[in-house]
Structure formats: C-alpha cells, structure tokens
C-alpha cells in the first residue's frame, strides 16, 4: 500500500481525429504524496494539460487508472471525488454575468454546501487575497492579476484537499506571475493542500515545487523526474542562486534535447 494521495498508473489518452487515433499521452506513472507540491513541465503539445484534465474529471483516460486516497478510478472521476478537487484554469475563467461573490458561490451551489460556515470561507479567502471590497464587482471591472486571484480562490471555497492548476498564471506578465507564485506558496504553506501544477516556464516550476516532472512530445510522456532540494519558504531572490540556476540548466537541457528530437 503506497502512501500517495494521488497516483496515476499506466495512464494513456487517445483522441480520435480525422487522420486516425492520436496518442496524446502514454505510459504516465507517478504519485504525489499528501501536502506535496509537484509540477509538470514540458513543451506545448506534450499532453500536460491532458493529464491534469483527466485528474480533474473533465476528460476520461483511455487506459490505466487514477487512484485518489486509495480509491481506484478507471472510468473517469466521479462527482463525489471532484468534491475533493479544486481546478484552476489557464484563463481566470470567471463567469462574466456573475459578481465576484456569485462566482465564488458557484462551487458551493453545485456541491450543495449551504450555511454560515461556507459563506465565511468565501469572506476569509477574499481577505487572504485582499479583494474583500471587490466582492460585489463584476469580473470585467478587475485587473488581470485580480481576476486570476479570484480564479484561484474559487477553486478553494469548497475546501478541497487537492488543487489542480493548469498553467494558472500563463496569461499574466512576468512581474504579476512571480508575485502570484509567491502568494500561492504562502497559501500552500498555510493550508497544506496537495498541489499539482502545470507550466511551460522552467524557473516557475523550480521556484514552486519539490519535484519537477519533465515531459516530452510525440507521444506525450514523462521522461524525467527532478527533485528540487531548495529550502522553504522559497523567495524570488533564490532564483539567482547557483543551485537554482543549475536546476534550470538541467531541466532546460532535458527539454532542449526533446526539441532537437522533434526537429529530427
């Protein structure tokens, strides 16, 4: 019996296209322990989004099984399990017709969570990201960074154990992204969620996670696992340290080799 919170066994996803079946990812095996922060990094088209979408129950694997807290799922993630997940999208993905508060109430409505306790959870999350006074605003009235913060806390209002983040800060500029990375780390230290994070930005992956899974294309698969042995709490200053740069070089080289493979 492993003590993984999340485990993937021989996961494969095949899409049917006009030119026949296309293998998006194959032979995906990895586990994530409770409270761990793991990043998947790789070039576009390597299937990293496919993996996290399978974990979130948005799509179903063609082969293999996903194991959450010891429970095995071969045919997609059922609703009861999705209650334990919070999915954060690449774009903030807020619903423009709802105010910020209504957007945050969405998971509560869907999961049928009523009562004072859950309303308080919204208030404290809003406070955590300093957006309390924007509760009644509409998403378009907020800046990009603010919208993305709401997108992050929306995935947390139902208090899930696991956060699945699909390139959440990919659309922000570098300064905003780094700031949100640091905020995310402090949220993680406080709440001790289990996080799987997708990015194509190598230094973001190193800054955040304890392990980086490096992916390759054609077909999408995980080729290497790099353990990040940097002390916590992490800070932006660490990004100039030698050890950080070594990791960066190591992972960039791994991805670079892939790109050469692709050219051949």
């Amino acid at each position: 019996m492993s003590n993984f919170k999340i485990e993937l066994e021989n996961i494969e996803k095949t899409y049917l296209t006009k030119n026949g079946p296309l293998i998006a990812v194959t032979d995906v095996n990895f586990g994530v322990e409770e409270n761990d922060f793991v990043t998947l990094v790789g070039p576009s088209g390597c299937g990293k989004s496919t993996i996290i979408r399978m974990l979130g129950g948005i799509i179903t694997p063609t082969k293999g099984k996903i194991i959450y807290s010891g429970k095995e799922y071969t045919n997609g993630i059922p609703r009861e399990e999705q209650r334990n997940l919070g999915f954060i999208f690449q774009s903030h993905n807020l619903l423009p017709w709802f105010t910020i508060r209504k957007n945050l109430e969405l998971p509560l409505n869907i999961f049928n969570l009523t009562g004072e306790k859950w309303q308080k959870s919204i208030e404290s999350l809003l406070q955590m990201v300093n957006l309390s006074e924007h509760a009644e605003s509409y998403p378009t009235e907020l800046s990009g960074g603010m919208q993305q913060r709401v997108g992050v806390i929306r995935a947390m209002v139902h208090n899930p154990e696991i956060l699945l983040m699909d390139e959440p800060f990919g659309e922000l500029d570098a300064i905003n992204r780094e700031q949100l990375d640091i905020e995310l780390l402090s949220i993680w230290e406080k709440t001790k969620k289990t996080i799987i994070f997708i990015t194509h930005n190598v230094s973001e992956a190193i800054l955040l996670s304890s392990r980086v899974l490096v992916m390759s294309t054609n077909p999408g698969r995980i080729i290497e696992e790099v353990k990040i042995d940097l002390p916590r709490p992490r800070s932006l200053e660490m990004m100039n340290e030698e050890r950080f740069l070594d990791y960066e070089e190591q992972i960039t080289n791994l991805i670079g080799e892939l790109n050469l493979e692709m050219v051949e």
Binding site: I58, S91, P107
Partner: peptide, 11 residues
C-alpha cells in the same frame, strides 16, 4: 473552457 469549469465541478 466554461463547460470545462462546470465539468470539473461535476455539475
């Protein structure tokens, strides 16, 4: 992506 959101919540 909005439908994905609802799917991720099991709506």
């Amino acid at each position: 992506v909005k439908l994905d959101l609802m799917n991720s919540l099991g709506a």
